Simulated scan of single mutants.
Amino acid sequence: MDAEGWTRELGRPGSVRELGGVRVSAVRCPALSLTGGSAGPYHLALLLAGELVLDQEGRSARAGREDLVLLDGGRPFRLAFTAPRNTVVTAHLPVVPGDPGQCVARTLSGREGLGALVAGLLTGLARDTTPYRSAEERRLGVAVLELSGALLDSGHSEPAPAPLLPRVQAYVLQHLGDGRLTPDDVAAAHHISTRYLHRLFQRQGLTVAAWIKAQRLERCRRDLADPRLAHLPVHVIAARWGFAQPADFSRAFRTAYGISPSCFRGRSLPTNSARAANDSRLTAQQTHG
């Protein structure tokens, strides 16, 4: 997405300044989502009001008032403005220092240090209406590039945010009992597209549906082996982990473990070692399946 496309997609332009190879624009927009990533410059966005969530390069950055975040217009991304009213000042940069992949989708504070200097410069340029000469505009563009570059370069040493996939999986585990849970629901909860969600799992050699199903089956297996839950019918245990149809659950359980749920539960385990050996064998079958 190029600079003009960015301004057009977001909403009402407040101001645009051309500073040589750098463009500084300010826009106001309601809650909305954008996807892109085929061509265009880098966008260093400063939130003056509202909130945004950027998902790119396997990371998810959440920025609030006076935070900055870098987006690479040439790589796939999903950007969501989540507040009813949002104001963002963006520096459209032709280049960034170092490894761009280490800079994108990282939240940087605009309230202190280099971040405060960048935020102050961008805010001032967005509000300034002075008609500068061409040479002055180029110098201002260089100032934006150099100061932004210093900020992004310093951000390399900060701890990386938690990867997105573990957070997605934790969310799924918290909602396993909801039989209506779909990949679309999971993606929406994390402000990413369903297609990108599938790519996250594919990188680990997994599929979303298969991983969810395997987690549900494992919870059912544990409950069926728990003597404290012996009073619960098999179909009740299946339902509590998202299997609405007993027949579907029985088929899935037999496929995963090579035994029906009722037979598995009815097996006698006279010693702890026998239980451990049986659990190990079942786990191996599940992995193989």
Rank of each mutant, 00 (worst) to 15 (best):
E4M: 08
R8H: 05
G11R: 02
G14E: 14
G14R: 11
G14P: 11
G14F: 07
S15Q: 09
V16W: 05
V16C: 06
V16D: 05
G20R: 10
P30F: 01
P30E: 00
L34R: 09
L34A: 02
L34N: 04
L34T: 09
S38T: 09
P41C: 00
Y42I: 14
Y42S: 07
L44K: 11
A45D: 02
L47N: 12
A49M: 13
G50Q: 05
L52G: 02
D55A: 14
G58W: 08
G58K: 13
S60F: 03
S60E: 06
A61V: 01
A63R: 01
L68V: 06
L68R: 01
L68S: 02
D72N: 02
P76K: 15
L79T: 05
V89W: 06
A91K: 03
H92W: 01
H92I: 10
V95S: 15
D99I: 12
G101N: 12
Q102D: 13
C103R: 15
L108P: 14
S109F: 08
S109E: 00
G110E: 06
E112A: 13
L114G: 07
G115N: 11
A116R: 04
V118T: 09
A119Q: 09
G120V: 13
L121A: 14
L121N: 14
L121S: 13
L122T: 09
T123Y: 09
G124E: 03
L125S: 00
A126N: 01
T129N: 14
T129D: 14
R133A: 11
A135V: 10
R138K: 14
R139I: 11
G141S: 11
A143M: 01
L147T: 13
A150K: 05
L152V: 15
H156V: 12
A160I: 12
A160S: 14
P161Y: 01
P166C: 06
R167A: 15
Q169P: 06
Q169N: 08
Y171G: 13
V172P: 09
V172N: 09
V172G: 10
H175Y: 03
G179R: 07
L181I: 03
L181V: 00
L181D: 02
A187Q: 04
H191G: 00
L197I: 01
Q204A: 15
G205N: 03
L206Y: 10
V208Q: 05
V208E: 06
E218F: 00
C220I: 02
R221K: 10
R221L: 11
P227L: 04
P227K: 08
A230C: 08
H231G: 00
L232Q: 03
P233Q: 13
V234H: 11
I237W: 07
A238Q: 03
W241D: 00
W241Q: 06
Q245N: 10
P246N: 07
A247N: 03
D248C: 08
S250Q: 15
F253Y: 08
A256Y: 10
C263L: 15
F264R: 06
R265N: 10
R265L: 03
G266P: 13
G266H: 02
R267Q: 07
S268I: 13
T271P: 07
A274W: 00
L282A: 11
L282M: 09
A284L: 02
Q286C: 10
Q286E: 09
H288C: 10
H288N: 09
